[in-house]
Design a binder for these strands. Structure first.
Lengths: 150, 150
DNA sequence: TACCATCAGTTTATATCTAAACTGATGATC
DNA sequence: GATCATCAGTTTAGATATAAACTGATGGTA
């Protein structure tokens, strides 16, 4: 929509942003794939881990709240919970007009074992950065999400 | 999780890295979802866009090369190409023992229309950063991928 | 009481994606 | 020439994800 005449710093800015985007998504996808591998040790997928981690953190929440926290649809939550329920890791209790979800003992045991491991693993992706760089990075990300959210 | 008193900068570093990870993935997922919406205008998904963009860029490549560039499996490429072929956007030519993929005229027209749009859109996610911050960000990402790749 | 909005969760259809098994062609080695 | 490994692409089964239609309960309002 914009033809700048004198070669535009806009164009250069866009080019820079594009490079960022491509690298950003490559890094993200690679990380997810590594996590997938890592979680196989416990026979879990990343999606399942996210659910377990979120329930463990909040102790007890409705399916709708869970969907909202994980930024996925209610339908997706239904499917994921069915599997986790079958595996005996979570429990659903109808409660008035909502269903509360919580971890079973088996689920809690898994939570306490896997979550610290996985968090250490995820954190390790940023080992290449020193403290100051990490703070810089987080700062930039915050600027981005401030913009994305609104 | 944190009883700070004198204690380990390691723990703090891990905590920082975790915050980065969560924000990183939230931003990424949000961006992808927005792209998904944006691409609906052209009846395309993100995966299909990536394929079209990559073929348009390279003019002609084998399915294996395509899989490698997009960091997905050969099986996935087979599935994606079947749809795009059916839609008349790409062409597959058996050539010795490989299949070369290229854009049809219809595919080329779409490519020329959608790619600039979409790139502008993806780039716009980083509008919140000024030039210097973009450069800083890219620099940090490069450090990360240098580590991740090897 | 009858009607109707809304709301939580489910279902269904469709698209991605992987891993692993499979197919068929190429080409090396005996 | 027969056998075998390799390699590109396909197929299949299973997990994830969405959107959109559906179900059933709650609760307001006429």
């Amino acid at each position: 929509m914009e033809h700048e005449c004198g070669t535009s710093p806009d164009k250069r800015d866009e080019r820079l942003a594009l490079l960022i985007w491509y690298r950003f998504s490559r890094i993200y996808n690679q990380s997810v794939r590594e996590s997938e591998q890592h979680l196989k040790t416990w026979d879990m997928t990343v999606a399942q881990f996210d659910v377990i981690a979120q329930i463990g953190l909040n102790k007890r929440l409705t399916q709708g709240q869970l969907a909202e926290k994980l930024l996925v649809t209610k339908g997706n939550i239904t499917q994921l919970l069915s599997r986790l329920e079958q595996a005996g890791l979570i429990r659903r209790e109808q409660d008035w007009k909502v269903k509360h979800v919580s971890l079973t003992d088996k689920g809690k045991a898994l939570y306490e074992q896997v979550v610290p491991m996985q968090e250490r693993f995820q954190a390790s992706h940023f080992d290449a950065l020193d403290r100051e760089e990490k703070e810089q990075f987080l700062h930039l990300l915050k600027k981005l999400s401030a913009r994305t959210t609104e």
